[in-house]
Amino acid sequence: MSQQQPAGVIHDIGYRGYDGPRLGRGAVARALYVHSLRGAFGLGRSARAKVLPMLLLGVMCLPAFIIAVIANATSSVLTELPLPYSRYAVVAQGILTIFLAAQAPQAVSRDLRFKTVPLYFSRPLERSDYVLAKFAGLSTAMFLLLAAPLLIMYIGALLAEFPAGRETTDVALALVGAVAFAIVFAGVGLVIASLTARRGFGVAAIITVFALSFAAISSLQGIIRYVEDDATLAGWLGLFSPITLVDGFQTWVLDASSSAVAPPPGSAGGVGYVLVTFGVIGACWALLNLRYRKVSS
């Protein structure tokens, strides 16, 4: 065929119309959600796109694996895991931040940079559906990144014959905390990434906001608490960095062991942390919707 006719000429195969089902908004949004989730791990794209997320997933699980092995090897001496489940997120925050910094721009900056957004909005997909699908997709990816090592540790604990009831409760609470981490991280990351079409800059900006805020706030908390002996003020300072914020949230709400320098001060502090956490999530949602309302070309 291609020898008889020049390439690019239309073949007269006959056009077939489409009479099949046309799924509504809900199904389309769900398809976009799955697409975003897969894209966060490089699935459905080129091989090179998979390298970094999979590498990060591996690095994320490695310490958990080591901990599980240690627990089993020394189960005669240890009666619990060397590192509590709920502290894993803060300990591994570097990996989480890099993953977020690499994949949040992947989720939104690409569409802005290549100007694919009008193609989405000229379809039966509302703007808020787009935002929801991207937000949920990235949050799920972050949650999976946190849940995998927790499950590895849990299996290790069960194999080491630690009390199953206690381990199950602990891991369940840690997973709830992981949900909070995932949503807050994804929200802040997406807001920052959606402000720029340049992927490199989005990556740097996300890292800066998370890493610098954590370094600055922890250092400040350390100084205020131990030099000034003011644990209350140090506790309040934790509101100003996403990592310490969610850590404080899970410490107070889920009774997790704190990894921060200073936990939320008292009940007032705890309530404050909860309010700010939900406030941050709400603000991210609103800002993302606002940003995409203005896109028209």
Partner: peptide, 13 residues
């Protein structure tokens, strides 16, 4: 092209 991410990996990890 992914300088920023690898640079971060270096700095953080």
């Amino acid at each position: 092209r992914h300088a920023v991410v690898y640079g971060l990996a270096y700095a953080l990890i």
